Amino acid sequence: MRKIEPASFVGERPWQALDIEAIEDATVPLHWTDRPYRWHVNDGPEVFVPLDGSVTMHYRRAGQEHCLVLGPGDICHAEAGDEHFAEPHGTVRILVIEKAGSP
């Protein structure tokens, strides 16, 4: 058993990950970032949980762009095939659960 203190994790580059666990075909990384990610589509579902800071999750459905603002503890679920990107507001740490090998 180990204790992880998210607030002490600081990446050397945006979206650097601290790999916490791999469970069957899923991974659980803790990401540190202060910059947006790019638009992308995953081949499996993803769950995002900001642990500190806030993030705007941009996503497209039926050609329309939408946004969700997430604060600490909020949960965002992206289905496989959802086009999306995360835009942090300052520095943020995000716990992600995703299919192993997802971009």
Rank of each mutant, 00 (worst) to 15 (best):
H31I: 09
D74H: 11
E79Q: 12
C67Q: 15
A17P: 01
P103R: 14
C67N: 13
W32C: 06
M1P: 12
D74G: 02
A7I: 10
G53S: 12
G63T: 13
E87C: 06
I4S: 10
R35Y: 08
F9P: 07
Q64I: 11
V96H: 04
A80N: 06
S8K: 15
P88V: 00
E98M: 08
D43V: 00
H89C: 06
S102L: 03
P50K: 11
E24T: 09
V69M: 08
C76P: 00
H89N: 11
G90K: 06
I4A: 09
S54T: 15
E12G: 15
D82F: 01
R60I: 15
S102N: 14
A62H: 02
W39T: 00
M1F: 10
I97E: 00
K99P: 07
A86N: 12
P14N: 03
D19M: 13
P72I: 03
I23G: 04
T27Y: 05
G71N: 05
S54M: 09
V41Q: 13
A86P: 03
P50F: 07
P88G: 04
G73P: 01
P36F: 06
A80M: 03
G44H: 02
P72Q: 09
H89G: 05
V10P: 07
A22M: 08
G101V: 11
R2Q: 14
V92K: 11
P36D: 03
A62P: 05
E79K: 05
G73W: 08
S102D: 14
R2D: 12
D34M: 02
T56V: 15
I23P: 04
E46S: 08
F85Y: 14
E79L: 02
G81T: 04
V69Q: 10
E46W: 00
E65A: 09
T56W: 06
R13L: 05
G44D: 01
I97T: 14
T33P: 01
P6T: 05
F48D: 00
M57W: 04
P45Y: 08
W15K: 09
R2G: 11
H40I: 01
M57K: 01
H77V: 12
V92Q: 07
T33S: 14
V10Y: 09
A7S: 14
V69I: 06
V41G: 05
S8H: 11
H40R: 13
L68F: 06
E98Y: 02
P103L: 10
H66Q: 13
A17W: 02
L95A: 10
D34A: 12
N42Q: 14
G53V: 04
E12Q: 15
I20K: 10
E12N: 15
L68S: 03
I23D: 07
A7W: 04
M57C: 11
R35C: 06
P29L: 07
H66V: 01
T27F: 02
P36S: 08
E12K: 15
G11R: 12
M1N: 11
A100Q: 14
V55R: 07
P50W: 05
P45I: 00
T33L: 03
P6K: 14
H40C: 08
E65Q: 14
H58P: 09
N42H: 15
H84I: 00
L70C: 14
V47W: 00
L18G: 03
W15E: 09
T27Q: 12
E24F: 07
F48A: 05
P29K: 10
K99F: 00
F9Q: 05
V28A: 13
F85M: 09
